[in-house]
Amino acid sequence: MGKLYDRLNQDIRFIEGLNGCLNCGVCTAICPAAEFYHYDPRVICATVQSKDEKMIEALIRSETIWYCGECMSCKTRCPRNNTPGFVIMALRKLSQELGYFTDSEKGRQQFAIKRAIGGNILRTGYCVNPDIVSPQMHPEQGPVWDWISMNTPEIMKKMGSNYKQAGVGGMRAIAPEVLEELDRIFEVTGCYTLFDTIEKHSKHKANELGIEISDEGIGNEYFMTVYTENNGSHNG
């Protein structure tokens, strides 16, 4: 394992995202996450720019890097054309590769995202489709979404979609041979390696915490724990 800073410097987003921060704090002023969480992109940039290995390790083991919403508002305003959001993406990748993400409550959520979104992409060809927005998991969607969920094929038909059918159109079924192409892209480009790493470290953490975890799917205690747990220390 090389130095953490050197590994960050291999990520194109880190190279593009940090041209030399003057610590003016404009990114923090505009940042939606900084207003909601104990989060300060200016400090993130200062920390990685210091090249202090201990501080960088502490950062990628912390809750902090998971607070960013990747809206990239910081990019627009930075007078040095930095993108702290890109720096965050490089830090998150490194945190996952090293298994440090399971040290934090927010980091452990990567397991739920991998199972829900990652699984859905490979299963359906979509990041999101109506099947994964269940009213039980999404009470904020309201009674109209409940009604849509109960009548999805009919409502999709009325909207001119081609719901789960072959051919073009909204919410069409993605053909098996297309999903095979996605599968091969995920294999060739290293996505499965990242998935396996998230799985391995999450299972280790689940066992350490004594929480039941399954080999696949979202019907397990560890998924629901990381999906819902909030210790209340992140803001306020």
Binding site: E70, M89, K93, Q110, I117, G118, I121, C127, T189, F195
Partner: peptide, 12 residues
């Protein structure tokens, strides 16, 4: 959405 939740690498 996978990319911006950091579970899908940039290369993918």
């Amino acid at each position: 959405i996978g990319y911006h939740t950091d579970i899908v690498p940039l290369e993918t």
